[in-house]
Design a protein around this nucleic acid. Structure first.
Length: 227
DNA sequence: GGGTATGATAGTGGAAGTGT
DNA sequence: ACACTTCCACTATCATACCC
């Protein structure tokens, strides 16, 4: 029998999904898994960011197809905003690559929307106890924030610090060092140092290579400004 | 048109400050 | 001690403007 609640007695759990019906369904799952938890809801990435910033969340359930998500960028943004909060990605997409990407980018678990309620409850218990939950056997050891794809770039990405990931995200958006420095309120030389560290960890020779690979890995198609 | 000076930008190396 | 963040000084590259 499953333990009823590994979560703190008054834990806060955010359900971020744009479909009210599915939010209701997820809330039933959460209620069953953690009867004492306070459940918050968001229907857009912006709402989720605001709630995550103001509430000390114990768990976040995130629909990756929600408005504003832009592929996995929303997951990355939330991970950077609340690095200590485990994030479970909820998606109708059950492709192995999607699951691997979500876990690579720091998700604490992946729950397909087609999954049985009991399995979802079990998955949430595993995540809240500090484990990584995945719906299928990906046949390789996996830890939160890491990955098992034999890919230097993705391994490098997992090794980036929070600030380095923020800089990389802005590089992907085509921003110059000067603009990044302004927006992060740091010196341009600091941005350059971060870029150098990013290139070293990602094992690429230029920001252009880093941006191209990052765009591919994040699963987003962007108009690439001149770099 | 070709050479040179200048400015903007990218990238590296090293060092200091801070938190764990 | 170590990792991370930040900054400075420096070099390299590229585009543009100017002069001959």
């Amino acid at each position: 029998m499953l333990e009823q609640s590994m979560a703190p007695p008054h834990s806060k759990i955010l359900i971020a999904d744009d479909h009210p019906l599915f939010r209701d369904a997820l809330q039933q799952v959460v209620d069953q898994a953690f009867p004492d938890a306070a459940v918050l809801e968001a229907s857009t990435l912006d709402e989720a960011m605001i709630i995550a910033a103001h509430d000390d969340l114990d768990l976040l359930l995130l629909d990756i197809n929600m408005p504003g998500m832009n592929g996995f960028n929303g997951l990355i943004a939330l991970r950077n905003a609340v690095p200590a909060t485990p994030i479970v990605v909820v998606s109708a997409d059950e492709e192995r690559e999607t699951i691997q990407q979500a876990l690579t980018l720091g998700a604490a678990g992946f729950i397909p929307k087609s999954m049985a309620k009991a399995s979802m409850v079990q998955g949430l218990h595993e995540v809240i106890s500090g484990k990584v939950y995945m719906p299928v056997d990906l046949s390789a050891p996996l830890t939160r924030g890491q990955m098992m794809i034999d890919d230097d770039f993705q391994q490098g990405y997992a090794a980036l610090t929070g600030q380095q990931r923020r800089v990389l995200e802005m590089l992907v958006l085509g921003k110059s060092n000067k603009v990044i420095a302004f927006e992060l309120d740091i010196a341009e030389s600091t941005v350059k140092a971060h870029v150098s560290a990013i290139l070293r960890k990602l094992r690429v020779n230029s920001r252009t290579q880093a941006v191209l690979n990052a765009s591919k890995m994040l699963g987003t198609v962007r108009a690439m400004p001149s770099l």
